[in-house]
């Protein structure tokens, strides 16, 4: 049971963050739906936030957490605008497949 009393090395948190970020990049590359591609971007943002919080814990620096707070606010604004753009694209093209949306002109 002494194994369970151990503290968790912070490098595991950073490794988890790296894995989540890589999964987000893979999702960005393989997903063919506009909304799911956007979700992969959110996954990458969350992975970076986790490493910010880990480093804030390591260096006893509360500004790391405040940075995450600002990232969250910007991400919320980005999600609202991005989803509005997706709705506008869907109105113009009637599709969400990224292969069909290959022209800048709507």
């Amino acid at each position: 049971m002494s194994f369970l009393q151990h503290d968790v090395p912070l490098s595991w948190y950073l490794l988890l963050s790296a894995v989540l970020f890589s999964l987000g990049v893979v999702g960005f590359l393989i997903k063919r739906n506009l909304i799911t591609v956007f979700m992969s971007i959110e996954l990458m943002l969350n992975a970076v936030n986790l490493s910010f919080v880990t480093f804030a814990y390591q260096w006893h620096e509360v500004r790391g957490q405040i940075f995450v707070f600002f990232v969250m606010m910007v991400a919320a604004a980005e999600a609202a605008v991005g989803l509005a753009i997706i709705i506008a694209v869907f109105r113009a093209r009637s599709t969400l497949a990224v292969d069909r949306i290959d022209l800048m002109k709507l």
């Binding site: 503290d7 090395p9 912070l10 490098s11 894995v19 970020f21 890589s22 893979v26």
Partner: peptide, 28 residues
């Protein structure tokens, strides 16, 4: 992606002076 992950994992695993997390320990 493979390169990014390999670089990140190598840096993280060889990072010096990184501690471990105690439950309930604050920043202050």
């Amino acid at each position: 992606v493979v390169v990014i992950f390999a670089v990140l994992a190598t840096i993280v695993l060889h990072m010096q002076g990184i501690g471990s997390a105690h439950f309930g320990q604050g920043l202050s």
